[in-house]
């Protein structure tokens, strides 16, 4: 009797979660309830970070400061022409009758957990519906695209990394604009680019950036660098591997991208 009841409960859960999306709302509430577990599990990393920032020598801090100041100077120098370039870009795009590209807003978030299951490439971040995180939102780090939000709880959300087996991202080659789709293969270090004809102009070292097709990810964020191209004459498609530019297994401070909806922004 007990066994039958248990099996019924479990089967009900599996079917409800797999076939219908009816549990999404419930899941968000329950996720909020279990979030403290992640918070507690994160304490060691936070302590380590605290030690790193508080227990350092004066000279190290000074060196860091100097280095950051130099970096800042270089970055500022690079952005000087940004304003005029942006204006020019908008004018040219207007000439071409295409929609203006808008700058995206970002919010800094912190990674507080990593999915314990090795077959799932997911992370948990410390921003949730309280901070207006929404489903499908893109997450980046300093070097590139990391993934997209798949579950939003009150104070945390769960992000599916681009290397997950179930994840694909529309990309284009930065050099010549050839479009493709980069799929995760379950390891943190590689993406596979499928269905690229063997004759396509793609080579090692090419940078893949988000193409914005599919409407999920904003345009132009770096995704991966092509590391291997195998062209087998017997195959219709080339076998292409790419390495994600984002530090998927190391970044702790990440950025949530708030894309300004083009429909809302009105004519420009």
């Amino acid at each position: 009797m007990r066994i039958v009841l248990t099996l019924l409960v479990v089967a009900g859960l599996i079917v409800a979660d797999m076939r219908f999306n009816s549990l999404d709302r419930t899941r968000a509430i329950l996720d909020t309830l279990v979030a403290p577990v992640y918070w507690v599990a994160d304490i060691p990393s936070r302590l380590a970070e605290w030690r790193q920032t508080h227990l350092v020598s004066r000279s190290t801090l000074q060196e860091d400061n100097d280095r950051l100041r130099r970096e800042n100077l270089i970055l500022e120098g690079r952005t000087q022409q940004m304003a005029s370039l942006q204006a020019e870009n908008i004018r040219l795009r207007a000439l071409l009758n295409s929609a203006a590209l808008l700058r995206d807003d970002v919010v800094v978030a912190e990674l507080i957990g990593v999915s314990p299951d090795p077959v799932r490439q997911q992370v948990v971040i410390n921003k949730g519906s309280r901070d207006d995180v929404y489903l499908g939102q893109a997450l980046i780090d300093a070097d590139g695209l990391m993934g997209q939000v798949v579950e939003v709880a009150e104070f945390t959300s769960r992000v599916l990394l681009i290397t997950d087996l179930t994840h694909s991202v529309p990309v284009q080659i930065n050099r010549n604009g050839v479009r493709a789709i980069a799929e995760g293969n379950g390891t943190l270090s590689a993406l596979e680019v499928h269905h690229v004809a063997a004759t396509t102009d793609i080579r090692e070292g090419d940078l893949l950036v988000t193409s914005g097709l599919g409407g999920r990810f904003p345009v132009g964020y770096p995704v991966a660098i092509v590391t291997a191209v195998e062209r087998d004459p017997g195959q219709t498609f080339a076998r292409i591997l790419a390495q994600p530019t984002a530090a998927l297994d190391r970044s702790r401070h990440v950025l949530l991208v708030f894309t300004v909806d083009k429909a809302d922004s009105g004519p420009e």
Binding site: V10, I14, M18, L23, V34, S115, E151
Partner: peptide, 28 residues
């Protein structure tokens, strides 16, 4: 086992029922 399983499913971001099923069988 059922309660712990649901909590684990949520924590792992797994499909609801995965750990629930496994833990229930282990408990039985």
């Amino acid at each position: 086992a059922l309660l712990a399983g649901i909590a684990m499913d949520l924590l792992e971001g797994a499909m609801l029922g995965q750990n629930t099923f496994a833990l229930a069988v282990v408990a039985l």
